[in-house]
Design a protein around this nucleic acid. Structure first.
Lengths: 202, 202
DNA sequence: CCTGAGTTTGACCGTTTGGTCAAATCAACA
DNA sequence: TGTTGATTTGACCAAACGGTCAAACTCAGG
Protein backbone atom coordinates (compact mmCIF):
# COMPACT_ATOMS: atom_id res chain seq x y z
CA UNK A 1 0.00 0.00 0.00
CA UNK A 2 1.45 3.37 -1.01
CA UNK A 3 0.92 5.91 1.73
CA UNK A 4 -0.85 9.04 0.58
CA UNK A 5 -0.70 11.93 3.02
CA UNK A 6 -3.31 14.64 2.89
CA UNK A 7 -1.72 17.80 1.45
CA UNK A 8 -0.97 20.50 3.98
CA UNK A 9 -2.05 24.11 3.66
CA UNK A 10 1.45 25.09 2.45
CA UNK A 11 1.55 22.24 -0.07
CA UNK A 12 -1.74 23.33 -1.59
CA UNK A 13 -0.65 26.93 -1.90
CA UNK A 14 2.80 26.17 -3.29
CA UNK A 15 1.64 23.57 -5.80
CA UNK A 16 -0.90 26.05 -7.11
CA UNK A 17 1.69 28.83 -7.26
CA UNK A 18 4.11 26.59 -9.12
CA UNK A 19 1.53 25.50 -11.69
CA UNK A 20 0.54 29.11 -12.27
CA UNK A 21 4.20 30.05 -12.78
CA UNK A 22 4.74 27.01 -14.99
CA UNK A 23 1.81 28.02 -17.19
CA UNK A 24 3.30 31.49 -17.57
CA UNK A 25 6.76 30.21 -18.49
CA UNK A 26 5.89 27.11 -20.54
CA UNK A 27 3.31 28.99 -22.63
CA UNK A 28 5.85 31.67 -23.46
CA UNK A 29 8.88 29.53 -24.20
CA UNK A 30 7.67 26.01 -24.86
CA UNK A 31 8.86 22.97 -22.90
CA UNK A 32 12.43 22.95 -24.13
CA UNK A 33 12.79 26.70 -24.00
CA UNK A 34 11.58 26.96 -20.40
CA UNK A 35 14.00 26.42 -17.53
CA UNK A 36 13.30 25.19 -14.02
CA UNK A 37 15.00 28.31 -12.70
CA UNK A 38 12.62 30.53 -14.65
CA UNK A 39 9.63 28.73 -13.21
CA UNK A 40 11.08 28.85 -9.71
CA UNK A 41 11.70 32.59 -10.01
CA UNK A 42 8.22 33.22 -11.37
CA UNK A 43 6.83 31.27 -8.43
CA UNK A 44 9.04 33.08 -5.91
CA UNK A 45 10.72 29.87 -4.81
CA UNK A 46 14.23 28.49 -4.92
CA UNK A 47 14.93 25.75 -7.44
CA UNK A 48 15.46 22.99 -4.86
CA UNK A 49 12.32 24.09 -3.11
CA UNK A 50 10.35 23.83 -6.33
CA UNK A 51 11.77 20.37 -6.93
CA UNK A 52 10.57 19.41 -3.46
CA UNK A 53 6.99 19.75 -4.72
CA UNK A 54 7.47 18.29 -8.21
CA UNK A 55 10.15 15.69 -8.89
CA UNK A 56 11.15 17.01 -12.32
CA UNK A 57 10.53 19.51 -15.08
CA UNK A 58 8.60 16.81 -16.94
CA UNK A 59 6.39 16.20 -13.91
CA UNK A 60 5.46 19.89 -13.70
CA UNK A 61 4.55 19.93 -17.36
CA UNK A 62 2.49 16.77 -17.13
CA UNK A 63 0.65 17.95 -14.01
CA UNK A 64 -0.08 21.26 -15.69
CA UNK A 65 -1.46 19.62 -18.82
CA UNK A 66 -3.65 17.05 -17.11
CA UNK A 67 -5.04 19.75 -14.86
CA UNK A 68 -5.93 21.88 -17.87
CA UNK A 69 -7.32 19.21 -20.18
CA UNK A 70 -10.87 19.15 -18.84
CA UNK A 71 -11.20 22.93 -18.92
CA UNK A 72 -9.80 22.97 -22.42
CA UNK A 73 -12.19 20.39 -23.81
CA UNK A 74 -15.24 21.62 -21.88
CA UNK A 75 -16.64 23.89 -24.62
CA UNK A 76 -16.72 21.09 -27.18
CA UNK A 77 -18.13 18.72 -24.58
CA UNK A 78 -20.91 21.22 -23.99
CA UNK A 79 -22.10 21.17 -27.60
CA UNK A 80 -25.54 19.64 -27.19
CA UNK A 81 -26.77 17.11 -29.83
CA UNK A 82 -30.33 17.98 -28.86
CA UNK A 83 -29.96 21.73 -29.12
CA UNK A 84 -30.58 23.90 -32.16
CA UNK A 85 -27.72 23.09 -34.57
CA UNK A 86 -26.93 26.64 -35.71
CA UNK A 87 -27.08 28.04 -32.19
CA UNK A 88 -25.05 25.17 -30.71
CA UNK A 89 -22.22 25.63 -33.20
CA UNK A 90 -22.23 29.40 -32.95
CA UNK A 91 -22.16 29.40 -29.19
CA UNK A 92 -19.42 26.78 -29.19
CA UNK A 93 -17.44 29.08 -31.44
CA UNK A 94 -18.09 32.08 -29.20
CA UNK A 95 -17.05 30.11 -26.15
CA UNK A 96 -13.80 29.19 -27.87
CA UNK A 97 -13.25 32.83 -28.76
CA UNK A 98 -13.81 33.85 -25.17
CA UNK A 99 -11.30 31.25 -24.05
CA UNK A 100 -8.74 32.77 -26.40
CA UNK A 101 -9.41 36.12 -24.81
CA UNK A 102 -9.53 34.95 -21.21
CA UNK A 103 -6.98 32.11 -21.29
CA UNK A 104 -4.41 32.97 -23.97
CA UNK A 105 -1.61 31.28 -22.09
CA UNK A 106 -3.44 27.98 -22.03
CA UNK A 107 -4.00 28.29 -25.77
CA UNK A 108 -0.35 29.04 -26.44
CA UNK A 109 0.73 26.19 -24.20
CA UNK A 110 -1.08 23.71 -26.43
CA UNK A 111 -0.10 25.59 -29.59
CA UNK A 112 3.58 25.46 -28.72
CA UNK A 113 3.38 21.75 -28.09
CA UNK A 114 1.41 20.86 -31.20
CA UNK A 115 3.46 23.00 -33.57
CA UNK A 116 6.51 21.07 -32.42
CA UNK A 117 4.85 17.76 -33.24
CA UNK A 118 3.06 17.25 -29.92
CA UNK A 119 5.79 14.91 -28.62
CA UNK A 120 4.51 14.98 -25.04
CA UNK A 121 0.76 15.02 -25.64
CA UNK A 122 0.28 12.88 -28.73
CA UNK A 123 -1.27 10.12 -26.65
CA UNK A 124 -3.75 12.52 -25.09
CA UNK A 125 -4.68 13.85 -28.51
CA UNK A 126 -5.15 10.41 -30.00
CA UNK A 127 -7.31 9.14 -27.14
CA UNK A 128 -9.28 11.76 -25.19
CA UNK A 129 -9.44 14.41 -27.92
CA UNK A 130 -9.91 11.92 -30.76
CA UNK A 131 -12.85 10.21 -29.07
CA UNK A 132 -14.52 13.51 -28.32
CA UNK A 133 -13.96 14.80 -31.84
CA UNK A 134 -15.27 11.64 -33.47
CA UNK A 135 -18.36 11.80 -31.30
CA UNK A 136 -19.07 15.43 -32.12
CA UNK A 137 -18.26 14.89 -35.80
CA UNK A 138 -21.08 12.34 -35.88
CA UNK A 139 -23.42 14.89 -34.35
CA UNK A 140 -22.44 17.46 -36.95
CA UNK A 141 -22.97 14.95 -39.73
CA UNK A 142 -26.45 14.20 -38.43
CA UNK A 143 -27.32 17.87 -38.41
CA UNK A 144 -26.13 18.11 -42.01
CA UNK A 145 -28.08 15.02 -43.06
CA UNK A 146 -31.17 16.57 -41.49
CA UNK A 147 -30.59 19.71 -43.55
CA UNK A 148 -30.23 21.87 -40.44
CA UNK A 149 -26.84 23.21 -41.53
CA UNK A 150 -24.99 23.23 -44.87
CA UNK A 151 -23.22 19.96 -45.72
CA UNK A 152 -19.45 19.98 -45.35
CA UNK A 153 -16.57 17.92 -43.98
CA UNK A 154 -17.21 17.84 -40.18
CA UNK A 155 -13.54 17.67 -39.25
CA UNK A 156 -12.71 20.66 -41.39
CA UNK A 157 -15.57 22.54 -39.79
CA UNK A 158 -14.09 21.88 -36.36
CA UNK A 159 -10.62 22.85 -37.56
CA UNK A 160 -12.00 26.11 -38.88
CA UNK A 161 -13.55 26.94 -35.52
CA UNK A 162 -10.32 26.16 -33.72
CA UNK A 163 -8.01 27.99 -36.07
CA UNK A 164 -10.14 31.12 -36.37
CA UNK A 165 -10.66 31.54 -32.64
CA UNK A 166 -7.28 30.40 -31.30
CA UNK A 167 -5.46 32.55 -33.84
CA UNK A 168 -6.13 35.61 -31.68
CA UNK A 169 -4.43 34.01 -28.69
CA UNK A 170 -1.67 32.01 -30.37
CA UNK A 171 -0.53 34.72 -32.76
CA UNK A 172 -1.33 37.61 -30.45
CA UNK A 173 2.11 39.15 -30.96
CA UNK A 174 1.45 39.44 -34.70
CA UNK A 175 -2.17 40.56 -34.27
CA UNK A 176 -1.15 43.31 -31.86
CA UNK A 177 1.52 44.66 -34.20
CA UNK A 178 -0.73 44.65 -37.27
CA UNK A 179 -3.73 46.23 -35.55
CA UNK A 180 -1.78 49.10 -33.93
CA UNK A 181 -2.77 47.83 -30.52
CA UNK A 182 -6.49 48.03 -31.35
CA UNK A 183 -8.29 45.35 -29.38
CA UNK A 184 -9.01 42.51 -31.82
CA UNK A 185 -11.73 41.16 -29.55
CA UNK A 186 -13.82 44.24 -30.22
CA UNK A 187 -14.64 43.22 -33.80
CA UNK A 188 -13.89 39.48 -33.67
CA UNK A 189 -17.15 38.22 -32.12
CA UNK A 190 -19.36 39.85 -34.73
CA UNK A 191 -16.92 39.07 -37.54
CA UNK A 192 -16.86 35.37 -36.70
CA UNK A 193 -20.58 35.25 -35.97
CA UNK A 194 -21.31 36.54 -39.47
CA UNK A 195 -18.71 34.29 -41.04
CA UNK A 196 -20.04 31.11 -39.49
CA UNK A 197 -23.67 32.03 -39.97
CA UNK A 198 -23.07 32.46 -43.71
CA UNK A 199 -20.96 29.34 -43.82
CA UNK A 200 -23.48 27.14 -42.01
CA UNK A 201 -26.74 28.35 -43.53
CA UNK A 202 -28.03 25.46 -45.68
CA UNK B 1 36.45 49.47 -46.76
CA UNK B 2 35.36 46.02 -45.75
CA UNK B 3 36.66 43.39 -48.12
CA UNK B 4 33.97 41.09 -49.53
CA UNK B 5 35.25 37.95 -51.18
CA UNK B 6 33.16 36.20 -53.79
CA UNK B 7 31.76 32.96 -52.27
CA UNK B 8 33.47 29.82 -53.50
CA UNK B 9 31.69 26.77 -54.89
CA UNK B 10 32.03 24.99 -51.55
CA UNK B 11 30.77 28.00 -49.61
CA UNK B 12 27.66 28.22 -51.73
CA UNK B 13 26.90 24.53 -51.34
CA UNK B 14 27.55 24.39 -47.59
CA UNK B 15 25.66 27.56 -46.78
CA UNK B 16 22.66 26.18 -48.65
CA UNK B 17 22.97 22.80 -46.93
CA UNK B 18 23.18 24.47 -43.53
CA UNK B 19 20.13 26.66 -44.13
CA UNK B 20 18.15 23.64 -45.29
CA UNK B 21 19.18 21.74 -42.15
CA UNK B 22 18.44 24.77 -39.99
CA UNK B 23 14.95 25.02 -41.46
CA UNK B 24 14.34 21.38 -40.62
CA UNK B 25 15.56 21.71 -37.04
CA UNK B 26 14.32 25.19 -36.14
CA UNK B 27 10.85 24.52 -37.53
CA UNK B 28 10.58 21.36 -35.45
CA UNK B 29 11.97 22.58 -32.15
CA UNK B 30 11.86 26.39 -32.22
CA UNK B 31 14.91 28.59 -31.73
CA UNK B 32 15.56 27.75 -28.11
CA UNK B 33 14.80 24.07 -28.52
CA UNK B 34 17.14 23.62 -31.46
CA UNK B 35 20.82 22.97 -30.85
CA UNK B 36 23.76 23.80 -33.07
CA UNK B 37 24.79 20.15 -32.90
CA UNK B 38 21.42 19.05 -34.25
CA UNK B 39 21.72 21.43 -37.17
CA UNK B 40 25.29 20.35 -37.83
CA UNK B 41 24.28 16.69 -37.82
CA UNK B 42 21.33 17.33 -40.12
CA UNK B 43 23.69 19.15 -42.46
CA UNK B 44 26.31 16.39 -42.27
CA UNK B 45 28.93 18.74 -40.86
CA UNK B 46 30.87 19.02 -37.63
CA UNK B 47 29.85 21.78 -35.25
CA UNK B 48 33.04 23.84 -35.66
CA UNK B 49 32.76 23.46 -39.40
CA UNK B 50 29.22 24.81 -39.32
CA UNK B 51 30.35 27.74 -37.19
CA UNK B 52 32.97 28.45 -39.84
CA UNK B 53 30.14 29.40 -42.21
CA UNK B 54 27.86 31.17 -39.72
CA UNK B 55 29.29 32.93 -36.68
CA UNK B 56 26.52 31.91 -34.29
CA UNK B 57 23.19 30.17 -33.81
CA UNK B 58 21.50 33.54 -33.96
CA UNK B 59 23.18 34.31 -37.28
CA UNK B 60 21.88 31.07 -38.81
CA UNK B 61 18.38 31.88 -37.66
CA UNK B 62 18.51 35.43 -38.95
CA UNK B 63 19.93 34.39 -42.32
CA UNK B 64 17.26 31.73 -42.64
CA UNK B 65 14.45 34.16 -41.87
CA UNK B 66 15.58 36.96 -44.14
CA UNK B 67 16.07 34.47 -46.95
CA UNK B 68 12.53 33.19 -46.49
CA UNK B 69 10.73 36.48 -45.98
CA UNK B 70 10.22 37.35 -49.66
CA UNK B 71 8.92 33.89 -50.51
CA UNK B 72 6.64 34.00 -47.54
CA UNK B 73 5.11 37.37 -48.36
CA UNK B 74 4.94 36.78 -52.13
CA UNK B 75 1.34 35.48 -52.23
CA UNK B 76 -0.03 38.57 -50.48
CA UNK B 77 2.19 40.80 -52.63
CA UNK B 78 0.66 39.16 -55.68
CA UNK B 79 -2.90 40.14 -54.76
CA UNK B 80 -3.72 42.54 -57.60
CA UNK B 81 -5.75 45.70 -56.81
CA UNK B 82 -6.87 45.77 -60.45
CA UNK B 83 -8.00 42.17 -60.63
CA UNK B 84 -11.46 40.81 -59.90
CA UNK B 85 -11.89 41.13 -56.10
CA UNK B 86 -13.51 37.77 -55.44
CA UNK B 87 -11.06 35.89 -57.66
CA UNK B 88 -8.04 37.75 -56.27
CA UNK B 89 -8.92 36.92 -52.68
CA UNK B 90 -9.83 33.32 -53.45
CA UNK B 91 -6.64 32.67 -55.38
CA UNK B 92 -4.60 34.34 -52.64
CA UNK B 93 -6.22 31.98 -50.19
CA UNK B 94 -5.55 28.96 -52.41
CA UNK B 95 -1.92 30.00 -52.82
CA UNK B 96 -1.57 30.21 -49.05
CA UNK B 97 -3.13 26.77 -48.73
CA UNK B 98 -0.68 25.37 -51.26
CA UNK B 99 2.17 26.90 -49.31
CA UNK B 100 0.97 25.11 -46.20
CA UNK B 101 1.01 21.89 -48.16
CA UNK B 102 4.31 22.42 -49.94
CA UNK B 103 6.25 24.37 -47.32
CA UNK B 104 4.96 23.26 -43.92
CA UNK B 105 8.35 23.72 -42.30
CA UNK B 106 8.47 27.37 -43.28
CA UNK B 107 5.00 27.84 -41.84
CA UNK B 108 5.93 26.17 -38.57
CA UNK B 109 9.14 28.17 -38.35
CA UNK B 110 7.15 31.41 -38.28
CA UNK B 111 4.43 29.87 -36.12
CA UNK B 112 6.92 28.77 -33.48
CA UNK B 113 8.44 32.20 -33.34
CA UNK B 114 5.18 34.14 -33.21
CA UNK B 115 3.55 31.92 -30.61
CA UNK B 116 6.51 32.63 -28.34
CA UNK B 117 5.99 36.37 -28.74
CA UNK B 118 8.08 36.83 -31.90
CA UNK B 119 11.10 38.04 -29.90
CA UNK B 120 13.46 37.75 -32.86
CA UNK B 121 11.22 38.95 -35.67
CA UNK B 122 9.04 41.59 -34.09
CA UNK B 123 10.85 44.33 -36.00
CA UNK B 124 10.30 42.52 -39.31
CA UNK B 125 6.62 42.10 -38.52
CA UNK B 126 6.16 45.73 -37.54
CA UNK B 127 7.89 47.09 -40.64
CA UNK B 128 7.85 44.88 -43.74
CA UNK B 129 4.72 42.88 -42.90
CA UNK B 130 2.86 45.82 -41.37
CA UNK B 131 3.41 48.01 -44.45
CA UNK B 132 2.28 45.25 -46.77
CA UNK B 133 -0.77 44.45 -44.68
CA UNK B 134 -1.81 48.08 -44.37
CA UNK B 135 -1.50 48.48 -48.12
CA UNK B 136 -3.59 45.41 -48.89
CA UNK B 137 -6.11 46.29 -46.20
CA UNK B 138 -6.74 49.54 -48.08
CA UNK B 139 -7.31 47.57 -51.28
CA UNK B 140 -9.77 45.28 -49.52
CA UNK B 141 -11.60 48.26 -48.07
CA UNK B 142 -11.93 49.78 -51.54
CA UNK B 143 -13.39 46.57 -52.88
CA UNK B 144 -15.89 46.58 -50.03
CA UNK B 145 -16.79 50.24 -50.59
CA UNK B 146 -17.38 49.44 -54.25
CA UNK B 147 -19.72 46.65 -53.20
CA UNK B 148 -17.61 43.99 -54.90
CA UNK B 149 -17.33 41.93 -51.72
CA UNK B 150 -19.25 41.92 -48.44
CA UNK B 151 -18.17 44.60 -45.98
CA UNK B 152 -16.10 43.45 -43.02
CA UNK B 153 -13.01 44.30 -41.00
CA UNK B 154 -10.11 43.92 -43.51
CA UNK B 155 -7.56 42.84 -40.93
CA UNK B 156 -9.84 40.15 -39.60
CA UNK B 157 -10.39 38.96 -43.15
CA UNK B 158 -6.64 38.57 -43.60
CA UNK B 159 -6.31 36.85 -40.23
CA UNK B 160 -9.02 34.41 -41.25
CA UNK B 161 -7.17 33.52 -44.45
CA UNK B 162 -3.93 33.00 -42.57
CA UNK B 163 -5.36 31.01 -39.70
CA UNK B 164 -7.51 28.73 -41.83
CA UNK B 165 -4.76 27.87 -44.30
CA UNK B 166 -1.75 27.72 -42.00
CA UNK B 167 -3.63 25.59 -39.50
CA UNK B 168 -3.04 22.55 -41.71
CA UNK B 169 0.72 23.06 -41.60
CA UNK B 170 1.19 24.42 -38.08
CA UNK B 171 -1.05 21.92 -36.31
CA UNK B 172 -0.37 19.05 -38.66
CA UNK B 173 0.38 16.68 -35.78
CA UNK B 174 -3.13 17.22 -34.43
CA UNK B 175 -4.79 17.15 -37.84
CA UNK B 176 -3.11 13.86 -38.72
CA UNK B 177 -4.22 12.21 -35.49
CA UNK B 178 -7.81 13.38 -35.75
CA UNK B 179 -8.24 12.48 -39.42
CA UNK B 180 -6.84 8.95 -39.12
CA UNK B 181 -4.08 9.85 -41.53
CA UNK B 182 -6.58 10.89 -44.22
CA UNK B 183 -4.98 13.61 -46.34
CA UNK B 184 -6.52 16.90 -45.19
CA UNK B 185 -5.50 18.59 -48.43
CA UNK B 186 -7.95 16.43 -50.32
CA UNK B 187 -11.02 18.22 -48.96
CA UNK B 188 -9.45 21.48 -47.79
CA UNK B 189 -9.33 23.38 -51.12
CA UNK B 190 -13.02 22.92 -51.84
CA UNK B 191 -13.99 23.42 -48.21
CA UNK B 192 -12.17 26.74 -47.97
CA UNK B 193 -13.29 27.81 -51.46
CA UNK B 194 -16.92 27.40 -50.43
CA UNK B 195 -16.34 29.02 -47.06
CA UNK B 196 -14.75 32.15 -48.46
CA UNK B 197 -17.14 32.42 -51.39
CA UNK B 198 -20.08 32.47 -48.97
CA UNK B 199 -18.27 34.82 -46.65
CA UNK B 200 -17.29 37.32 -49.33
CA UNK B 201 -20.42 37.38 -51.48
CA UNK B 202 -22.01 40.82 -50.94
C1' DC C 1 8.52 24.64 25.70
C1' DC C 2 9.59 20.44 23.21
C1' DT C 3 9.39 17.42 19.38
C1' DG C 4 8.93 15.57 14.94
C1' DA C 5 7.26 16.14 10.56
C1' DG C 6 7.14 19.48 7.01
C1' DT C 7 9.74 22.97 4.51
C1' DT C 8 13.69 25.62 2.69
C1' DT C 9 18.28 26.36 1.13
C1' DG C 10 23.45 26.68 -0.24
C1' DA C 11 26.58 23.92 -2.13
C1' DC C 12 27.34 20.71 -5.30
C1' DC C 13 27.31 17.23 -9.50
C1' DG C 14 27.24 15.48 -14.20
C1' DT C 15 25.68 16.80 -18.68
C1' DT C 16 24.56 19.79 -22.41
C1' DT C 17 25.10 23.92 -24.68
C1' DG C 18 27.10 27.76 -27.66
C1' DG C 19 31.31 28.93 -29.03
C1' DT C 20 36.81 29.06 -29.60
C1' DC C 21 41.30 27.74 -31.29
C1' DA C 22 45.43 25.86 -33.11
C1' DA C 23 46.57 22.44 -35.94
C1' DA C 24 45.67 19.47 -39.78
C1' DT C 25 43.86 18.75 -44.37
C1' DC C 26 42.24 20.01 -48.87
C1' DA C 27 41.77 22.39 -53.32
C1' DA C 28 43.16 25.47 -56.86
C1' DC C 29 46.31 27.75 -59.50
C1' DA C 30 50.86 29.23 -61.07
C1' DT D 1 54.99 20.46 -58.02
C1' DG D 2 54.83 23.88 -54.59
C1' DT D 3 52.47 27.27 -52.32
C1' DT D 4 48.72 29.74 -50.55
C1' DG D 5 44.24 30.40 -49.03
C1' DA D 6 40.07 27.80 -48.03
C1' DT D 7 38.20 24.17 -45.33
C1' DT D 8 37.80 20.75 -41.60
C1' DT D 9 38.46 18.87 -37.10
C1' DG D 10 39.62 17.25 -32.17
C1' DA D 11 40.28 19.24 -28.03
C1' DC D 12 38.83 22.45 -25.21
C1' DC D 13 36.20 26.25 -22.38
C1' DA D 14 32.75 28.82 -19.63
C1' DA D 15 28.08 29.14 -18.82
C1' DA D 16 23.64 27.15 -18.28
C1' DC D 17 21.07 23.25 -17.46
C1' DG D 18 18.27 19.55 -14.66
C1' DG D 19 18.69 17.51 -10.59
C1' DT D 20 20.66 15.88 -5.68
C1' DC D 21 21.70 16.18 -0.82
C1' DA D 22 22.67 17.06 3.83
C1' DA D 23 21.94 20.55 6.83
C1' DA D 24 19.14 24.21 8.57
C1' DC D 25 14.89 26.20 9.50
C1' DT D 26 9.70 26.47 10.46
C1' DC D 27 5.56 25.21 12.34
C1' DA D 28 1.68 22.74 14.43
C1' DG D 29 0.28 19.67 18.26
C1' DG D 30 1.12 17.98 22.75
Amino acid sequence: MTEKRAPTRIQKKNRATILEAALEVFSQHGFRGATVDQIANAAGLSKPNLLYYFPSKDAIFTALLSGLLDTWLAPLQAMDPNGDPMEEILSYMQRKLQMSRDFPRESRLFANEIVQGAPRILDILSTDLKDLVDEKARVLRQWMDQGKIAPMHPHHLLFSIWSLTQHYADFDAQVQVLMDGEDPYEAAPEFLETLFRRMLTP
